[in-house]
Structures are given as C-alpha cells and as structure tokens.
Design a protein around this nucleic acid. Structure first.
Lengths: 159, 159
DNA sequence: CGTGAATTGTTATATTATTACATAGCGTCC
DNA sequence: GGACGCTATGTAATAATATAACAATTCACG
C-alpha cells in the first residue's frame, strides 16, 4: 500500500491537478467567508490531499514535524478543526482519520466508501441514500443533524 | 441525563425484562454456536444493557472495578471483542462506545439513530436504506463488507 | 503604530486501545 | 485420575488518539 495517489485505475487521474483544484477551492471558499486559510492550515490541507486515502492526525503531525521542525498535537487538531468547520475536510470516524472533501464548494450530504485493501476513500452524495435515511428518521420521529455513513469493503480495483 | 433506561417515553418499557431477554438471547446464541458466555462476558453484556445508551469501554471498566475489585483494559476489550464477534453488541464508531444489539438472534444490517440530547441509541434495520446503499455501491463497483450508518440528532422526546 | 482578536506555540494530561507475557480454568484422551 | 492442550483471564507496560490550559505571537483594522 503506497502513499501515492490511490484511485480507481480506470480513472485517469492527474493528481497534481486534483490537489491544485482542492486548494483553489479552499482558497475560494475561505475568501468568500472571510475565513483565513493560513499557511499552516493550507499546508495541512495539502498533506491530506497527498492521496485519496484517509490520513491520521499523527501522520500529519509526523510529516509536519519533518518539515517544520516542531509540531505538537494541538497544532494539527486545530488545523483539522478549522478545515472541517469549513467543509474542506471530513473525518472518517471508523478510521479515526481525515480525508479531503471531494466537493468543498457547497454543503452536501456524503457517504464514504472505504476500501480496506488499498485505503482509498471515495466520497459520494447519493440522494437515494439520503432520502432513505430521511424517511427512516421521519418514521421514528427523529430529527437528523449529522449523518455518518461509512461503508467498508473492496473497491473495484481491489476485488 | 440520568443513567437509567432511556427510551422514547411513549414506549412503555419494562427494562428489567428487556435486559433479561437480551441475556437470554445471548445465552441461546452462544449455546447454539458452542461459544462460552462466561460470567465475565455476561456481566459486561449486562452492564452494557443497563441502559439504551452507548457505554464507553472505560465506563464499563470503572463499573467492573467497583464490583470485582481489579479490572484492566484488556479485560473489558476482550469481553467486548467476544460480544461483538457474536453480534451481541455493536460498536458506535462516532462515539467510541458500545451498545447492546437490539436483535442478536440473527445477523442483520443496522442503522443507529443517536440522540445527542439524551444519549439513547435506537437501532433499526431499514431495508430501504440498505437497498439504497447496495445500489450506490453497485454503481461504484464497490463490494461492501461492513456498513456503518450512524445518524446523530434528536429523538422524538428531546426535540 | 497601537489595540484587540485570532492564531499558533508549549506543556501537560486525558481518553481510548493494544501488546506481550504470565496464570488459571477446563475439556478430553489415554 | 493425571497430563496435555486450548481457551480465558490477569497483569504490566505502552501505544494511539485527543484535549485543556495558558503563553506568545501575528494580523487586521482603526
């Protein structure tokens, strides 16, 4: 399992461009809101986008430490908190890890398909799933505020 | 937020019986499989069933320690591992906590509705949600092995 | 510039979980 | 019944994940 970009092989994927787009979107989103995408936060976001796998907070920490010299947990967790607050990054609860948001330009539901073989996390927003959940909630009289939908298994190229 | 049983108030709920049923089912499931529901494992299962909230491993540990005297993390985690392996308990990843399985008698999909106000976790098996997920996976060529669907919000009585 | 708010640094600690190895219980085969 | 082997439990240490609390710095804005 390399650290290089992991995506379905059928997908012609220019990852440099993929990262650039993510960072550009992040800049735009933050600018629009008057939020400060500082060098540190941007750097953390970039580390997260090095691959399409979920990355752990302490992996980010190690990489930062290797580059900046000093880095402590709060540095990373605060950056993550900011990035998540602005929808630029998602936390994958079942992995205690973080992944770049595939479409940070607007708020949306998301479901995560996590390949346990190669580690790739594929984010989709499937309205059918969303609606099914909403109807289930309604039947229970439950008001949903946060949805965590994470499916583990094997991606197409790892089966 | 008390530690007493928490369920929708409309639900007339005899919790003593609810626990007894859970333990009986557990005995039956284990007997059928030749698995040993030891005193310790049974005790942990009982602690988990004290309420319909998710309980943390270290809360179980504290309660055990108060009763048995000594108790160390592996004791609890091993019991949990056993109980989960036999479908008697679910892990709620978004809470790092554990909840009794509402229907341990057979394998099934599950979705969890977690009230962030009172802590109650309601487990349902909604085929519509299940099917929607399966179709989404199919479209991606993804083979799902484990589903984690946890919806946070407010239950009917906490809105 | 000077000021207040936001950001980052730093130390310590809390919380969650596992590894590794020792001991004890328990079934079964002769 | 005793030796063997397997499963379960005890114990100590530590790894992995996350937050609290307070100090120092930076930055926007007047």
């Amino acid at each position: 399992m390399s650290d290089l970009p992991a995506l379905a092989p059928a997908t012609k994927h220019n990852h440099a461009r993929c990262v650039r787009d993510a960072l550009d979107t992040a800049e735009a989103v933050c600018a629009r809101r008057g939020a400060r995408l500082t060098a540190l936060r941007r750097h953390v976001l970039e580390l997260i986008w090095r691959s399409h796998k979920a990355i752990k907070a302490y992996e980010i920490l190690d990489q930062l430490a290797g580059e900046i010299g000093a880095a402590r947990p709060p540095t990373v967790y605060r950056a993550l908190e900011f990035l998540m607050a602005h929808g630029l990054v998602h936390r994958v609860d079942s992995l205690n890890a973080f992944v770049g948001c595939a479409d940070a330009s607007h708020r949306h539901d998301a479901q995560f398909f996590i390949c346990d073989a190669c580690g790739t996390v594929r984010e989709i927003d499937d309205v059918t799933i969303g609606r099914a959940v909403s109807r289930g909630a309604e039947r229970l009289g439950f008001e949903v505020e946060r949805r965590m939908i994470e499916l583990h298994g094997r991606c197409g190229s790892c089966q």
